[in-house]
Design a protein around this nucleic acid. Sequence first.
DNA 1: CAGTATCCTGTCCGATACTG
DNA 2: CAGTATCGGACAGGATACTG
Lengths: 161, 161
Amino acid sequence: MKRTSFESMPCPLARALEHLSDSWNALILREAFYGATRFDEFEATLGIASNTLTRRLKDMTAGGLFERRLYNDKPPRYEYVLTQKGKDLRPVLLTLLQWGNKYSNPPGASVHLVDTLTGAPVELALMDAVTGERIGPRHKVVGRSSRGKAQQSYPFPETHL
Amino acid sequence: MKRTSFESMPCPLARALEHLSDSWNALILREAFYGATRFDEFEATLGIASNTLTRRLKDMTAGGLFERRLYNDKPPRYEYVLTQKGKDLRPVLLTLLQWGNKYSNPPGASVHLVDTLTGAPVELALMDAVTGERIGPRHKVVGRSSRGKAQQSYPFPETHL
DNA sequence: CAGTATCCTGTCCGATACTG
DNA sequence: CAGTATCGGACAGGATACTG
C-alpha cells in the first residue's frame, strides 16, 4: 500500500530519481538555473501553489540540492541557492531538454541551448571525457544491482542503442 | 485539486518530464536498456506489482517509448521493444546515473559505464557536437517559455554553473 | 506466461485562509 | 514578502485473486 521508496534501492539511478520524480522539482531546478532564488520568483514563474512550493523547496534543501541563505535581517528573508550537487544536475536537465525538443509533438516552443560566444545553437553530445568518443552501443553499464525478488540478474548487461 | 499536467506546458522540458516523473518509468527503461523485453522480466527484476507494470507499460507505449510486438501466435504473446524515441532517452538516464554515482551517500553499489573495447570506466561529459567543447556556463538556454500567472519572464535567461 | 479486475491506502497537489 | 495550517480530491501503487 505504500509507495516504494526508490531511495532505499541500491541502484544509484533509482536514488537519483528520487529528486526528479517529484514532478515539480525539475521545474524548480530549471528556474534556479535561470537565476531564480526567491520564493516569490519560483511561485510566480511556475504558477505553483505556495504550500506545494514550500514542501518541494524543503525537500530539495534537505536533499542537499539547495541551500537556504539569509539575505536580509530586519525581517528575516531567505533565498534558495543551488549547491554544487544541485548545479551538477544541469547536464541531466539539458540532455532531457534536448530530447524534449526532438520529440516535441505539435505544440512546441523551441527552447534550445546556444553558445553565447558565437550565438550558434548547440547540439548536445554525450562523450567519453577521456577518449573523446561519443557514447554509443559499445559503452555498457556494469555492476548492476537490481532489486528483483529472485535477486536475479541478467548474465551480462546488454544495452540497446 | 487536480494534479497539474505538465504535458500541457509549452516547455519541452516539462513535457519530457511527463515520461520520467512517474517513478517507475525510468526503472523500466533501465531494464529495457539492459535487454528486457517481456512482461515477466520487468516484473521479476524490478519487483513491481503486475497491475502497476501493466499501467506503466501501457502509458509508455501510448507515449511512443515502447512498441508492443507479437512474438508468438498460438497463445498470443507480446514483448515490449524500445522505439527510437525510447532509445534516445539513454543519454538522459546515463547522465543521471553518473550524477547518482557521484552523490551516492553511504550505501552505493558502484554502477558505472565502461568502454567495452578497453574495459576502462567512462567519465561522461556533455559537449557541443559541433565545436567539441564542453558544455559550461557560457552555454545558455534561450527561447524560454514559462507558464507564470503573469506570463512574466526574466529579462534574459541567466544560467548558473 | 501475460496480463486483468477490485479494493484500499498513501501521498501529492491545489484552494483557501491566515501570519510576522 | 515568505511562508504556515488545514482541508479535500485525484491518482499511483500494493495486495490479492482470477483468466486464456
